[in-house]
Amino acid sequence: MPHKWGLAVDLDACTGCGACVTACHAENNIPTVGPDQAARGRAMHWIRIERYWEGEFPDVRLRFRPVMCQQCDNAPCEPVCPTYASHHTEEGLNAQVYNRCIGTRYCANACPYNVRFFEFFNPVWEKPLHLQLNPDVSVREVGVMEKCTFCVQRINAGKIQAKAEARELADGDIKPACAQSCPSKALVFGDASDPDSAVSKLRRSSRGAGLLEDLGTRPNVTYFPRHTEA
């Protein structure tokens, strides 16, 4: 049975610390673009923390929501791609193939979550920062679209390692950078096709909901809304 990767986000646990954002940038060689380009909406964050203020001062509450690619089963970004750069894998990942991408940006326009990013420039790292680039992940060039991959390099590495040790993949073997770095364990990643995995158990809860679910995108990221009054 093929794997089906899913992520559960517990908004009760999320403190909005931003460790996931930092870890994601480091893991996936995501360039920073500087304040001028960021002001033009060209900043790239495969995962971002949305902030919501509720109430009137001084009685205000702050809520956080980490948002990454929802790896939709019915992804709006896929049918609009003229080159099949954005396509669905057997394991339910919404894959982006940089080699095929010709930069039409239709996918980013179709995505209701704003989680696809375009390389407007060739990324630049001041030396010696280029030595910290992750060798397991491509460094994308100008003119391609990129987005959260659920750390597919770690998924592949985990599968290769399990096969080398002649065993089945165990729950928790694979952790994307965001889930690994989350200090409050708000992000839980795993195989949703395995009924005993932590993520499957969480997904069975009636509390869980997908982001903008009524659009029919069938996201593979499940959010658990806050139920404590902080």
């Binding site: 630049v124 030396k127 680039l133």
Partner: peptide, 15 residues
């Protein structure tokens, strides 16, 4: 619009 800087010895770029 600012022009992206040309690759130099002090930076690494995919260009």
């Amino acid at each position: 619009a600012p022009i992206p800087q040309a690759p130099s010895e002090t930076v690494f770029t995919t260009a």
